[in-house]
Simulated scan of single mutants.
Amino acid sequence: MLAAAQQIAVDTLDDKRFHLRVGMGTHGLTRDEIHANAGLNAIGQYYGDLDELRAILAPMLGIGTAEERARNKASVREVTPGQASELLSATTPVQQFATKSAVLTSRTLLSDEQIGAAAERLLEWPGSDNEEGAGFAMFALGGEINQVPPDATAFVHRNGVFILAAETSWADYDPPRVATANLHWLSEFYQSIFGDTPPSQSYQNFPDPTLKDWRRAYYGANYDRLVEVNRTYDPTNFFSYPQAIGT
């Protein structure tokens, strides 16, 4: 399913009417709950004819049992703008969470081996009381995003197909050992996907305190210019945190 979704994203990279987010995840406290809740998900939107959308999604809609195919086909439907805003609404994880990201280009899309390794590691998630659980989401880029030159704005990621965000979460009231186990798992989960050579770019809105060369990963060649802007408009570094521009 994820392989099909990646190919669809490549095929529709220049189509401004289409957007897709896919991922895998789970939640729960016990091993049985974590295994039972593990699964894949997809959500998105298309500004066009319903039959056109089903044709675009055909490689995904043709996967699974007859019952699964029927259910997935029925989930692709025409809605009003108000209904769409409800269906597409999402929040960042509440309570405690950590994330690691990567910008995937057409040359660094996930292989079947990488997806399989991530799926295996997902089932080894240590669990927590946070219903947000753990896993990864892939947010498709393309469209107008990729039409802007990388040096035109602070946002440098203009040649990507997806932003991948690997996440784990735990509750405020979980004991410290749960947080430690989740952070350790996240590092292993990310490494199971990318090994020791992850993609060079990461998304600054998914900050990763463990990222070594975060300046280039977040901002690329734009970083030095952003430092000059920061010195001009925030000379005292009022807007500052450990990965702030100029630190």
Rank of each mutant, 00 (worst) to 15 (best):
Y190E: 00
G127Y: 04
G25M: 09
R231N: 12
T108Q: 11
I245C: 00
A244S: 15
N41G: 15
N146M: 06
T26Y: 07
G62S: 15
H27M: 11
A70I: 04
Y233T: 12
Y233G: 02
T80D: 01
F162C: 10
Q243V: 10
A9Y: 00
N230Y: 04
V10R: 10
A70S: 14
Q147T: 15
E131D: 11
A137E: 03
R225V: 05
Q95K: 13
S200A: 14
G246R: 06
K212G: 08
N205T: 12
S202P: 01
F238T: 14
F18W: 01
Q95P: 04
F139S: 05
A90T: 12
V227I: 11
D196W: 02
L50K: 13
D14L: 12
V79M: 08
T168W: 02
W125L: 03
V161N: 08
D196S: 15
T108E: 02
L40P: 08
D32Q: 13
A84V: 00
W170M: 05
E124A: 12
A66F: 00
A90C: 04
W214M: 10
D213Y: 06
E78G: 09
I163Q: 06
V94N: 11
G64D: 04
D51E: 12
D32S: 14
F97L: 08
P242M: 04
G127H: 06
S106G: 11
G25L: 06
A244T: 00
D11T: 07
T210N: 12
D32V: 13
V227N: 07
F206K: 07
P207Y: 09
S89Y: 13
N130A: 10
I8T: 02
L53E: 08
T108S: 15
G195E: 03
Y173H: 14
P207I: 08
H27I: 01
T99Q: 10
R54A: 03
P199L: 02
R77T: 13
V229I: 15
L50C: 07
P207D: 00
R31E: 12
M60K: 01
R17L: 08
T180Q: 14
L2C: 05
F97R: 02
